[in-house]
Design a protein around this nucleic acid. Sequence first.
DNA 1: CGACGCCGTGGAATCGATTACACGGATGAT
DNA 2: ATCATCCGTGTAATCGATTCCACGGCGTCG
Lengths: 338, 338
Amino acid sequence: MASIKDVAAEARVSVATVSRVLNSHPSVSEEARTRVLAAVEALGYRPNAVARSLRTAQTRTLGLVISDVLNPYFTELARFVEEEARALGYSVIIGNADERPELQDHHIRTLIDRRIDGLLVSPADGGSPLMRDVALGGTPMVFVDRWIPGIDVPVVRADGTGAVKDLVAHLHGLGHRRLAIIAGPAATTTGNERVEAFREAMRGLGLALPDAYIGQGDFQAASGRRATERFLALAEPPEVVFAADNLMALGALDAIRARGLRVPDDIALAAFDDIPWFVHTDPPVTAIAQPTADLARAAVRALADLIEGRTPQSVTLPARLVVRRSCGGAATNQRSDR
Amino acid sequence: MASIKDVAAEARVSVATVSRVLNSHPSVSEEARTRVLAAVEALGYRPNAVARSLRTAQTRTLGLVISDVLNPYFTELARFVEEEARALGYSVIIGNADERPELQDHHIRTLIDRRIDGLLVSPADGGSPLMRDVALGGTPMVFVDRWIPGIDVPVVRADGTGAVKDLVAHLHGLGHRRLAIIAGPAATTTGNERVEAFREAMRGLGLALPDAYIGQGDFQAASGRRATERFLALAEPPEVVFAADNLMALGALDAIRARGLRVPDDIALAAFDDIPWFVHTDPPVTAIAQPTADLARAAVRALADLIEGRTPQSVTLPARLVVRRSCGGAATNQRSDR
DNA sequence: CGACGCCGTGGAATCGATTACACGGATGAT
DNA sequence: ATCATCCGTGTAATCGATTCCACGGCGTCG
């Protein structure tokens, strides 16, 4: 593959001049510029990003570590992150943690070794020593969706409390009183917050949330299935199951169907995270939608600000309730968002 | 960030010795080795992958260019690709083409600029000049899922003809005679092959496939919706719609529902690509499942073979029919695969 | 006892870019 | 006419690794 030297030779100028042309430095004669451009064209020259990065100590690359690529919420996030990053002149390297802390650390380490300019993380756990070191070590970092208390970096996330309150009110209005939740891992902020918002909303309506109605999940479908089976085996099963993410809702649906029960007649279902498929499930699932595109954009901008020396902003955007048929009653707000 | 020089100074040896220790070169005294290791530990040193790549002319990185991250089939593929690559000591950088040829070229270009060791591509189109140049230019390259005729690189893909034949037989057995297909872009191999297999299977049963029953799609949901609307507006609408990928099936479902029709009573639906959500749609969708994990593994191995100088193998694995309820009748083969 | 070879080590070249600095020539001001 | 300035250009240092080559010391063999 042709290097800058070959171009210089072909154009009969020095490598410095070639570099200047390529970086549109003003001090180059028209004469030299055209000769260099011709040589670039003739040789099909493309600058070596590796060499450039070594010299300039920047890669124009962002790392994005997400908890699970198979989760449509995260792939949507990833898509918008890449879009915004590209608009700002950055590439994105995605690391998929599969909700496994050690895989998350693996990806963070290789991203750091590649000297990415900044890191966007949606932590799968409470934060490893490595993550702490990276944040303290000066690598620009922004948390998106989930964050880790005690690590002082900007956080871009959705606030679901309002939407959860709306959901609980909606359920209460439909006559439901025994509400259960499948929580995410306690180590994640989204795991806790959603339970707390739920509990708080219920308390506001004078409803109790017994421990038996709190299932422990890990944001994966299988855990949603297990938790739901446990609910259904109770002497007094809940009337509603609220899953803290879309995959666990899928698992819940499995478990309910396996029991031969029907949604919403026998039991109602709602989920955090709205995804296109929820419109097409049987029945369509009531969900809390996050403003994914806006979150992605805000996160990338915050990270770019951090990298380029501006002051980044933490951002919190409201999530909103999308009512469909899985909780019973008429769907008043049939928005499909897509 | 500490460099190899800092480690050398700390350990009171030369950088050459540090490098030898790090690459487990035999010619290093035990004495020196322990001192270097101690220094590495003390400084929290991590080798700079950029510098190493420049020198060694390899990045131990694979590029994966997929047509659409929002398509669950491709994210599943991406997940397994990364898994296998990691097992072989490679990282993966994903480029999402969003089914847009110019975006695809953009990603190929930046991946090449980064000097990735090899490229895994599922082309979104018939092949740009750039793709041709890259293949000819000596960058190791393997096509996965889709390929481009005339570019001589290994291809790893699923063969759907058998499964399509099974599907058509299944539909025929259920009494359906007017079968329609929503095709993918003619520029993609998967776009054509699936139509051809379908046509062939129908011919085998003495059925005709009129042009009006061939909808032109682009593998995106919206096109599935449009094609289906056109089918439904025909004087004699089809009894079955077969979508050449899962997103177009989703669009078809939308269109059918918008018309107030029911699946499978009013019209049957089947799709190429099986995804977890098809188990939960209303009704569960009959689909043709590809052996995604095996495809991913085979593709990565072929690419690694190419990179490391072994002879790579093109691989074709059979897809298989998964019958659910969306075509009517009893679902005989209720496998959910997950 | 001398030569040869091996082992551990360090010096220095190298990968492909960017960029500080120097230099010659032209231009403009006084 | 003289000097300062500016412009276009080239030389060379540099980024952080790997690796070839040379060298000194030591063991072995003839």
